[in-house]
Design a protein around this nucleic acid. Structure first.
Lengths: 255, 255
DNA sequence: CGTCGCTTTGATCATGATCAAGGGATGTGG
DNA sequence: CCACATCCCTTGATCATGATCAAAGCGACG
């Protein structure tokens, strides 16, 4: 659901192009985006870059690393709303509200571009077409949230974990951070549980079950999916929701 | 999370103004929106206006009535993703994808404006500022989805139902369809269960519990919240996520 | 009068939570 | 180099929230 990471010329140029393919940007827009995202900031693992309730005057475009959006409830329970990967904006929709709705914590060391709000706002005036594209990409994220809701609301623990790992596979593949059936990510069982509404010990059992069935192994920060089809069948996973139409296709489709 | 329902002059003018207050529209934009949403369509209760998997070439702006977005899983279980009320766009994000991701069914007789995609797309070219505002309002919806996820992922049945009824109260108040503590809506217990990941019989018990505690009664299409504060405390309900900054405030905040 | 949509209630079951304890790896300060 | 802490995984025993199954009641409506 992301946008190009930066203007050409940086290490992620290839990635940038891939993303640009579904929100095509003009040269002009690309350079503006590049300029806007030129202020970067290193974030250490475990560090929060957004704290629930605080006000923010910037968006954060993730250039490298993985973060998570979460909420801590009164009684200390935590729900992870989603994972944020390179190309995603963190700080949305937080900054559209009075105080941030969730906190955002780095799961790995990360690098984010800080985009001051006034810059984004200026786009509404000076480059509304680019603003529209950026907000269009935000809209697509709603689909990821909704799918997550369906998973948590109506699926068994086994299906939830399977679906979660497959979603991650697909999202990381899109940005070149996963190969056909594996990826590296420091997922503790607690994180999986908090993302899926499951308890830590039960996640442990589910993972063992999945491993015994030869479907997937999660070990030492590496997820290896041995049987993508089997796992997809178990999870009833359809990747469609992760691949919105590009604006180009969007226009085609309407003709 | 909606937009003005129509240009001035129609029955919903007051409502229209209220909504416009958080996505301020110029006179020009208002009239364009009015023209674009002038093709309306009556929908009967129980009728689907969007079917999962099908392709659509239009957005539907709800003018009157309540609908729901839902998915039926393989095994027949249903998850209701959210309720759609007047001022919301149905068909988002469905139409951003190859096939609609969810179905949308009318809970009551309803009236929707059909906005052909080419019209929306044209906005990107001719009125990108308006397009940006429309997509901005879509972005805000992600917050509603996320909150719903937190509710379903980490709250007890009692809290879920309480939260759900309060969210509805607030959303309906914003569009003038609820008074201080009550509203009409044909909510069956099955619908509540499917929205919250609960079984029908259990919803029944939870509702009775809430009624016995003098918090809320749901009867004959009418929800009466007897103790808003008590219910809010039980549900840990904060309404912030339902009131995004207006673009105006958004701009103020950034200064 | 019979069907349909919805609610109510009871009995039983099971998924997954909770509580508790321990183990292994890695890292850090003394 | 050891002591200790931290982080994460593993496993067992028990519990409970909420699902499932079943049946009946009750209006409304044709």
């Amino acid at each position: 659901m992301g946008l190009p990471l930066r203007a050409a010329g940086c290490a992620e140029a290839q990635l940038s192009l891939r993303l640009a393919s579904y929100v095509p940007l003009s040269q002009d827009e690309l350079s503006i985006l590049g300029e806007i995202t030129s202020t970067t900031r290193a974030v250490r693992r475990r560090q929060d870059i957004v704290t629930e309730g605080k006000q923010y005057r910037a968006l954060f475009l993730v250039l490298d690393g993985i973060l998570m959006r979460y909420r801590i409830l009164r009684d200390g329970r935590r729900q992870i709303v989603n994972l944020v990967v390179p190309g995603d904006f963190a700080g949305v929709p937080g900054c559209l509200f009075d105080g941030a709705l969730y906190s955002i914590k780095a799961l790995t060391d990360a690098e984010v571009a800080t985009v001051p709000l006034p810059r984004v706002l200026a786009l509404f005036e000076t480059h509304p077409r680019l603003a529209a594209k950026i907000f269009w990409s935000f809209s697509c994220e709603a689909a990821v949230y909704a799918e997550h809701l369906i998973v948590v609301g109506r699926r068994t623990a086994l299906e939830r974990v399977a679906h979660f790992l497959l979603e991650l596979l697909t999202r990381l593949q899109v940005i070149g951070l996963a190969d056909d059936c594996s990826y590296r990510i420091p997922l503790s069982q607690e994180i999986i549980g908090d993302a899926l509404g499951l308890s830590l010990p039960y996640v442990n059992r589910v993972l063992r079950q999945l491993a015994e069935d030869g479907l997937v192994t999660v070990k030492e920060q590496k997820v290896i999916i041995n049987d993508v089809d089997g796992l997809s069948a178990l999870a009833d996973f359809e990747r469609g929701y992760l691949t919105p139409l590009s604006i180009a296709e969007f226009i085609e489709g309407a003709r």
